[in-house]
Design a protein around this nucleic acid. Structure first.
Lengths: 227, 227
DNA sequence: TCGTCTTAGTGTATATACAACACTAAGCAA
DNA sequence: TTGCTTAGTGTTGTATATACACTAAGACGA
């Protein structure tokens, strides 16, 4: 225990659950595996931690490499370490989750074989239907990781202002309500939601309106903008 | 990225923040390091994850080896992965925290060079005074880990019934209030605390009293006993 | 230009949770 | 029996959460 034996060394990887909300639904970015094990199966973007970087840095690097994203909200989720989670080598995975707004997703999200999947979460279990297809089983233990990530953001949304990470800088109150409904998976009363949000001071109205097909909606922005 | 290179392998360790409440104070078990680096400095109990075990299992093993504890509350906290956190080798540490009641601590807690330290947490920073001695700087990044652990249990205590883990099976309402006060670091109103706890249904009264120097106090037990 | 459609926007009443606060009860010991 | 110490108990005001329905504004087509 005093010195590190070669047998004590283990592969350390990061896997990143990248969430966005689009079309009124929580969505997750998955990429298709190009190699064994689990070749051709869908998996969370991830990769090994390099000798000279922290897991946080590795997760940021993955975010840029796999989704072209820089400076988005990123937090550590949990570390998965079952010795059998990778059928070939011992790999411990430090899982992260990221929140991105649609407007930050350019063409870059089409990198490699990756795409967005809706996350359907009725009451407990998490499903990822691809336009009505049956729930795909993800590679490794990534179903568990995804489930843990959904559970985390649901719990966190209720008392930490992270919903803004899933929206452009300016948004309407209806848009942010739809984010909450998509993440939590249940409808919310419009008047209560608005009065509570405004009273909390998290949000500030701006002198602009979202114009479109119907009555224009006032725009708001997050008060403490994460820089 | 397809295969694991030797350079991708990293030492993976667990460190366990073992808490108890005694004498009205939150206490943490530290052990004195017997080897370099940080020889003779106080540190959290910990060790390397073996090739055939999960980090959870390694943390349980540490708990038994260093403190003689079996079957106590144990949860993963966070993974610390700064490349420079160990000055000699690259080691990633998966930190855990454990909650133990005094009555589970027998002579075993005197194993090796280890002892309990009070955790003083005014408003933010965490100090570990040894009977009035200046705050010892722990080895590695263990000050940060301890701070994160205190923050976690404070947050969790407010909405998850984990306080019972720090008490014997039967306890008085004054005892559990003292646990809350020790963890949160501030006094709590007796009547409000009692009525809220009883209304929550977490606790059930027992037909027994703690007898002692003064008026006997009714004993209670946790409703959903973790088996 | 008028009517219809769709989304935006607003207030009140009720129930529940939280916070502040002080005295009596029971046992022990001198 | 008196004094000391800890156990035990309710009410009131305030804040917060919930349930609930109509009017306002613009777009579009007849």
């Amino acid at each position: 225990m005093n010195t590190i034996e070669p047998s004590d060394r283990i592969g350390v990887a990061v896997d990143v659950v990248i969430f966005t909300v689009d079309d009124g639904h929580l969505q997750v970015l998955l990429s298709r595996r190009e190699h064994e094990p689990f070749e051709d199966r869908w998996a969370l973007p991830g990769g090994f931690v390099r000798p000279d970087e922290s897991a946080d840095q590795a997760a940021e690097r993955e975010l840029t490499a796999k989704a072209g994203l820089v400076g988005v909200f990123l937090e550590q989720l949990y570390t998965f370490s079952d010795p059998a989670r990778d059928p070939r080598n011992r790999v411990v995975s430090v899982a992260y989750y990221a929140l991105v707004s649609r407007d930050r997703l350019g063409a870059q999200a089409g990198l490699r074989e990756s795409r967005w999947f809706r996350v359907d979460h009725g009451a407990g279990e998490v499903q990822v239907p691809e336009l009505g297809l049956a729930k795909p089983c993800l590679a490794f233990d990534h179903d568990r990781i995804l489930e843990a990530a959904v559970h985390r953001i649901q719990g966190k949304l209720e008392y930490v202002p992270i919903g803004f990470q899933l929206l452009p800088q300016r948004f309407t109150l209806t848009e942010i309500q739809q984010v909450y409904e998509a993440v939590l998976g249940h409808p919310i009363d419009k008047r209560n939601f608005r009065s509570k949000l405004l009273k909390s001071g998290q949000v500030r109205e701006v002198d602009a309106y979202r114009t479109g097909a119907h009555r224009p909606a006032r725009l708001y922005e997050f008060t403490r903008r994460t820089f």
